[in-house]
Design a protein around this nucleic acid. Structure first.
Lengths: 222, 222, 222, 222
DNA sequence: GATGAATGAGTTTTCATTCAT
DNA sequence: GATGAATGAAAACTCATTCAT
């Protein structure tokens, strides 16, 4: 269980640690990895209930029974899919943030990064948003724990921004985080469903405009 | 298909018109309504695939075959559920906005209203967020058209705010709308899944704080 | 639950009551009866585990799904098979005993009757001996309750024989009953398995000879 | 194939010969013996069809494939289990009968011995009664041949009793044998299924009472 | 001889949908 | 319009058996 982590370094270390662990057993039998890859694809395409084990087996080039050598059951396989990606995701984010100064810049980068990741990992994203993050089971999964780390990373950046006087002090960091994640997700759904392209750079600008400056005219806030 | 509507009054009229239509044939046979009510409940509780027609029939107090008198098939029934609610929802929103002056106040009201509606219509909300808004079928449904009206309503408010000089002119109204909807939705998911209570008033404040004033210190934006 | 019954009349009445009940709902839908008849045949032929639901459905001339309209699952169907036969069996026995005087004659009749029933109901018998009477589930089944009545009938006959001075007083009636049943069953197994014919009359004589007179020479018992 | 043996000594010799052979290759690789021991346990516990090869392999501490080095298939393994026990059983019986004079005493001993063996070898007994002795395959197995020797032993004792004038001459020895075996078996089933204790001494008395003296009052047989 | 990963045929069970009444 | 018995296709999962190492 990840307890609430507040220091940037703590979050970083946690992510790095898990990422390294996962990378090490990444090649534990190409079979397992092929099955997960196939599952990611088919689950994302058809949804959990309309995916058949037989279709995954075919795509992975293994027999149906083989899948049950590696995974308890269909649900188990579903939750196994994002385990790798979620931590990889957090790790990527971390790398992208290297050398960036200031909370504002970091947040902008986070927004850009997430949109970009969604764009380049459509299957994974569909799976996460449309299939996995429903039902209480998700909140007990490894994937959730991993994403929690990423989510903590954002929280930490916001808090440090406040501490350093770069961000106004009276905002609720949780809400800011949820706004960032929620906005991106909401914007992404039609893209995911219809497979349209995402004009990332414009989006980042538009989102940051609101997040940083708000809607009100300056003199109205006085 | 609803074409893009931009005038407040246009949106209002459209919503009123549909709402009135629906209200009129609301009592077209209590059977149909009982089936829809049962479907809403069971679909929300168990999800689309784990709901059986037989369970809905039982809950509605009709025979299984009867359901097929009113609905083509299971999916058809699923999409029929939100048809009523979505327009009712838009209509409610409209009523709540009556007499409120200024885009800022209206937006604040919208945020409050939506959180409140989610809270008081948990089944409907679960259904919409977790079941219906996936798969391209949704975007062809009546429910989508209805929600589009609500969504246009928000857009119009923002645009009028810009026109009236109450809202800064360089924001993208679509993004603002998506931020509002996305944030509320993202915050709501754990509540929906776990059935926790929602501290609405605090949330509205926290969200509005960011939406209206942004994160940056005033003098930093110069 | 049948409590231990000791009076001949009590046993008789109990059996008659249940037999009548069963006869009444014997025609409750020919489908159910056809399924049970098919199940009896196939289960007896192949054994429980090597019987497929599909084979039973085919034999019964119904769809596989139909079987599940009437029975919870395969095991449930297995136990449903002997429910009718067991009480019918007890009832037949009762009828055959009508007008027979004396415990000795009744016991002889019981032995004859049971061998004859086995001969004429080979499927039922195979099922009972080889499939059903294993596993603790049997002892909770209706079939067990019914056979218990039959078994009580034998006990009662023995006890009345003792009471009337026709049977020696120092025998354990339970053991006598088990000897009768066990002997017949043991003799029957090869017949059931190989489908040979049973020379009933000789068997009855041979069994009765031992049961009534024993192995010892008369003067040796003094 | 064992042809019908009638002389006590012949039966004895046959049993001794086979018993000695088996004892010699008893230690032919501890693997095989461990597999058989594991199979006996699991088959008895779960029944043939609900036992998995994997469970036996685990219990025996070998790999699944290893089992197929020693046995053709699952059925083959099932029938291999009682091969040892059955002859051991016959051999034990023989030893217990040493020095006992008279058919009556020998039969009493046989009854006691068999009940005792059942009690102390519950797994083996469950396996024999509930799993193996069904289906025509059994009658072609080594176990059947071995038990046939034991069965012949009983027959021989009865015949010698008749010859020596200790047993009445007009009984059918086969029936007597089947009565002994059938009675004990029938009494044992509930014990085996529920794991209750067996009050052997009382049982032996009660059974012998009937077998030797019969139910009829002495003067009634004249 | 020993292993155990891989196989894939085979089975129970579910359930949306139909249609005769 | 209403019913609900009947259908049968479809799918997850199991496990005896094989075979390359």
């Amino acid at each position: 269980m990840t307890k609430s982590v507040v220091k940037m370094n703590d979050v970083q270390n946690e992510i790095k640690k898990i990422a390294t662990n996962l990378k090490n057993n990444k090649d534990e039998g190409s079979k397992k990895r092929r099955i997960i890859a196939a599952a990611e694809q088919i689950f994302a395409q058809k949804g959990f209930f309309e995916t058949t084990i037989s279709a995954i087996a075919k795509e992975a080039g293994v027999a149906e029974g083989t899948i049950y050598e590696y995974f308890e059951n269909k649900k188990d396989l579903l939750y196994a899919v994002p385990e790798q990606n979620t931590i990889e995701y957090a790790d990527f984010a971390l790398n992208h943030l290297q050398g960036i100064k200031g909370a504002t810049n970091k947040i902008r980068k986070i927004i850009w990064f997430q949109l970009d990741y969604f764009r380049t990992h459509r299957n994974y994203t569909k799976l996460m948003i449309l299939e996995i993050r429903r039902g209480p089971d998700y909140f007990k999964s490894k994937a959730y724990e991993n994403l929690k780390l990423y989510s903590d990373l954002i929280l930490t950046i916001i808090r440090e921004g406040i501490r350093d006087g770069e961000i106004v002090s009276d905002v609720n960091p949780y809400i800011v985080r949820d706004m960032i994640l929620g906005t991106i997700e909401h914007i992404s759904i039609p893209w995911l469903v219809f497979g349209r392209e995402i004009p990332i750079d414009d989006l980042v600008e538009d989102i940051c405009k609101v997040i940083f400056s708000g809607l009100s005219l300056k003199d109205m806030t006085f």
